[in-house]
Write a protein that binds this DNA or RNA. Structure first.
Lengths: 114, 114
DNA sequence: ATTAAATATTTGTTAAATCGAATATGCGAT
DNA sequence: ATCGCATATTCGATTTAACAAATATTTAAT
């Protein structure tokens, strides 16, 4: 993992929030991220694709949903950076996590989304 | 320290190399960084000014020279990121450090530079 | 007061990143 | 086959970032 590519990936607020949410939650699908971030679908999808192409994320399709998690082979300095940043920015992310939980607890949902 | 501003600062190769060299050497002046990076003066100066304005560096003028070091109040997650990245990228920086030592050992120099 | 060295800033240009809107694709259910 | 939902991609426009070249500023030395 090239450090410049890595930090470029974290240099956009939407991408950083995606990464921290995924670091926190292990695995999230696009619609969960949309709900957490309150951002439009093409925007989230575009940034996730960019993170995948840069080697920070991997995706897994399950039915209609695509789940993203951190690339399993990230070097330790990259994992440490994400972990430290997450811990320091929990309050920064709390609103997003609340949105995510609210969506997950909706009585009318069958799976993670809809 | 806003994480997006911080990572934007690290997202450019010249700035990242400046930061890692300074993290390694504690304090460096502009001409030392120029020699280490083999980059033109306005380019180095411009990026250093940006890092200062973003709150990552502080400067100290001593005679004709301006020395830059890490801002003393950086949060720990930021320091950890720089330290971890430096340790992982020492080989990446070795060429620059060699250039720096070569300059410092020139018999015709009176001070750090010229 | 002049000169030279170190550093900073301005200017104009070019390249890169981001975005919203629209459209396309993939999958499951009927 | 077709409909609806989740996701991806394209397009055009706008903004932002980086650069080289030229010029300005600051300081020390004479």
């Amino acid at each position: 993992m090239n450090p410049t590519i890595f930090f470029k990936a974290l240099a956009d607020e939407t991408r950083l929030r995606c990464l921290l949410l995924i670091t926190h939650s292990d695995e999230l699908c696009v619609c969960e991220l949309m709900a957490a971030l309150e951002e439009a679908q093409p925007k989230v999808s575009r940034h996730l694709a960019q993170l995948r192409k840069s080697g920070l994320l991997v995706d897994r399709r399950q039915g209609q949903w695509v789940y993203y998690r951190l690339h399993p082979d990230l070097p330790s300095w990259a994992n440490t950076t994400l972990q430290e940043t997450l811990e320091a920015q929990i309050s920064w992310l709390e609103q997003n996590l609340t949105q995510l939980e609210r969506m997950k607890n909706r009585p009318d949902r069958l799976t993670a989304c809809n």
